[in-house]
Amino acid sequence: MSSLRFVVMGALFSVLALVGTANAATQHQIDKMTLRSAHRAEPMSATELRKIYSGRSWIWKDGAGYFSRHHSRFAAWSHSHGQRSYAKGTWYAADRGRLCMSAIWYSKKSAAPNVSCFLHRKRAGIIYQKRASGGKWYVFRHNPTKHDDEILKLRLGDYVHKHLPG
Rank of each mutant, 00 (worst) to 15 (best):
W77P: 00
G65L: 06
F74T: 08
R73A: 05
F67P: 01
H70F: 13
R50L: 04
D62I: 09
W58P: 02
K61Q: 08
A75Q: 10
W58S: 14
F74N: 07
A76Q: 04
R56I: 02
R56M: 01
S54H: 02
D62K: 09
S54W: 03
G55C: 06
F67E: 00
R69F: 08
S57W: 07
A75M: 08
R69D: 07
W60G: 09
H70E: 13
D62T: 11
D62F: 13
H70D: 12
S72H: 15
I59P: 04
K51L: 12
A46C: 15
A64I: 06
K51H: 10
Y53H: 14
S78D: 11
A46W: 10
R50K: 09
S80V: 15
A64T: 04
H79I: 05
S68I: 10
F74L: 10
S57I: 09
Y66R: 00
S57P: 05
G55R: 03
A75R: 14
H70G: 06
K51V: 13
W77N: 01
W60P: 03
A64L: 01
S78C: 05
A76E: 02
A76I: 05
H79S: 06
E48L: 14
G63D: 01
G63H: 02
S78W: 04
H71E: 09
L49C: 00
A76T: 05
D62V: 09
A64E: 03
W60L: 14
S78N: 14
S72P: 13
S78L: 07
A64Y: 01
A64G: 02
S68M: 10
L49R: 00
R50G: 03
R73L: 06
W77L: 04
S54P: 04
E48S: 14
I59C: 09
D62L: 13
F74E: 09
S80C: 09
F74G: 13
W77C: 03
R50P: 02
W77F: 14
T47W: 08
R50W: 07
A75V: 13
H70R: 11
Y66D: 00
H71W: 14
H70T: 11
